[in-house]
Simulated assay, not measured.
Amino acid sequence: MAMANPYAKYATQSINTATPEELTLKLYEGCIKFINLAMIGIDEKNIEKANTNIVKAQNIINELNITLDMNYEISKNLRQLYDYLHRRLIDANIKKDKVILEEVKEFVVEFRDTWKQAMALARKQRG
């Protein structure tokens, strides 16, 4: 029997034990990672690498969008922003445009940083 990849086992376990808040943070971080990899693909003129990673970033934005709790007013604003970012990622993929990818990345970095602050505030209030 083959030995399982220890990193894959750790990654799976960290996802299975993560809170919903931690999963959202992981999605933001994954999106940033895939945008960075897509930009490298564009620099390398590796169209397949760029496409694959932009699609992964699109999938993450889509996941963030469909899991919004629409009982909150802010969710309506986030839905519009996620829709916009998804469209921009499609444009970036069609044009293989790093400027568009940078624009999307700036939004996602801001979302991630704000989410981290919200998580820290929530922890303070609980404990």
Rank of each mutant, 00 (worst) to 15 (best):
E21C: 02
I42N: 11
K9E: 15
D43L: 12
L68G: 05
L89C: 08
Q13L: 15
E63D: 09
T24I: 11
L25N: 14
S75A: 13
S14G: 06
N36Q: 13
I100R: 01
I15G: 02
G30I: 02
I100G: 07
V104E: 04
K33H: 11
A11P: 03
I61G: 00
M39V: 07
P20S: 02
K9A: 11
A8F: 02
M70D: 08
K33S: 08
A57F: 07
N16S: 01
D43A: 12
N93G: 06
R88L: 05
I42W: 13
I54A: 11
D69I: 00
N51T: 15
E44F: 01
T19F: 03
N65W: 08
N53I: 04
P6F: 05
N65I: 07
N5M: 12
Y28S: 00
L27I: 03
K26D: 00
A50K: 07
P20I: 03
Q13K: 13
V104W: 01
R79A: 02
N77Y: 09
L23K: 05
T24M: 15
R87N: 13
G41I: 03
T67D: 07
L85Y: 05
N93Q: 12
Y7C: 01
K95W: 02
K45F: 09
I40S: 14
F34A: 15
K96M: 07
D69Q: 00
Y72I: 00
I60E: 07
P6Q: 04
E63G: 05
S75I: 00
N51Q: 05
K9D: 01
T12I: 04
F34S: 08
H86Y: 15
E63Y: 14
I32K: 12
K98H: 10
K96Y: 13
Q80P: 09
K49S: 15
N53Q: 02
D43G: 12
N5F: 09
I15K: 15
D69A: 00
A92G: 13
I40V: 14
Y10V: 15
I42L: 11
K9W: 09
A18P: 00
H86T: 08
I61W: 00
K98T: 06
T67Y: 12
F34E: 10
L37Y: 10
R79T: 00
A50F: 06
D83N: 02
P6G: 06
N46I: 08
I74W: 03
A92K: 12
D83Y: 04
T19M: 01
A8Y: 03
L101T: 09
